[in-house]
Design a protein around this nucleic acid. Sequence first.
DNA 1: AGGTCGGCCTGGCAGC
DNA 2: TGCTGCCAGGCCGACC
Length: 315
Amino acid sequence: MPELPEVETIRRQLEPDLVGRRFESVEVLDPYFSQPSTAVLFERAAEGSEVVDVGRRGKYLVFEFDDGNSMVIHLRMTGSLTLVEPDGSLNPGDPRIEPPATGAGNGAGPAPGDRHLRARFMLDDGGRLLFSDPRRFGRGFIAGPEALDDYFDSRLGVEPLSPEFTVEAMAAMTEGRTGPLKSFLLDQKGVAGVGNIYADEALFRARLHPLSPGESMKAEHHRALRDGVVESLERGLDLGGASIDDYRDARGDAGKMQHEFLVHRREGEACPGCGEPIVRIVVGGRSTYFCPACQKRLRRRPRRRAGRPLRKRAR
DNA sequence: AGGTCGGCCTGGCAGC
DNA sequence: TGCTGCCAGGCCGACC
């Protein structure tokens, strides 16, 4: 599942090869991809545009065009973007040359005849960018600068790898939140880009229980969670992301983060901290892995009622 | 307003 | 073997 480290890995690979290139033709093969816009409108808006920047916001990839508009792509669960060089390889010098487009298939990409291919962007240097997505959850749209700002502002919170992601910001975001910390981390309006994998890893690094309410945290916990999020995302970036099922980077390679999960998808295995078995629970409908020994649940801080002194406990 | 839950999708797999 | 049913989960909209 592409989360921030996976999307950023793809962005870093695409940027040097796409900036300065022009989309000569664009084909939307699955109308779902461009919904709610139509395939034709999407194709018209992208065709002829030169890419001047490849950016990222949360889990969204942002291809900025020379006309000021941007094409935004979200990979969701199973989407992938693959850049094919003019010679058919996945990067210069790569041995995985596509078979010549003489036989079956139409030279669709790294997997010729890929039935999950949803959109194809032909570049002016003969290369092409392919969007493939078995589950059809991924989406693309084109927007002007103001509309794009509004879109992101209403959906996304702070970038966790930016200087704005401070301990104070963490404290402000979790104040008054009664829901579980796991749900807070998955809410993109708080920290943008964290998904199920890195939420589990961040909570373990912070030694925080996924069901602890946001408002139960004290200053030391705010710092621990901020640091846990940053460390888990940076580790994922260093390893080129995590490949559990479908994820591949823009060159068709798998990431290595899945070999270094501390708790995620490791139910019953020994906790890397204390050796106790890792447990799986469901929080907000999501599989959640943690160590019950290392990640103790915080209790809600008692709220003082105005004008009334704290009562001593009866008995 | 914050929290929770179902729906969107399809491939893969368990179970019969 | 082939069928059914369930699970995976990011995001959104409906609802409490």
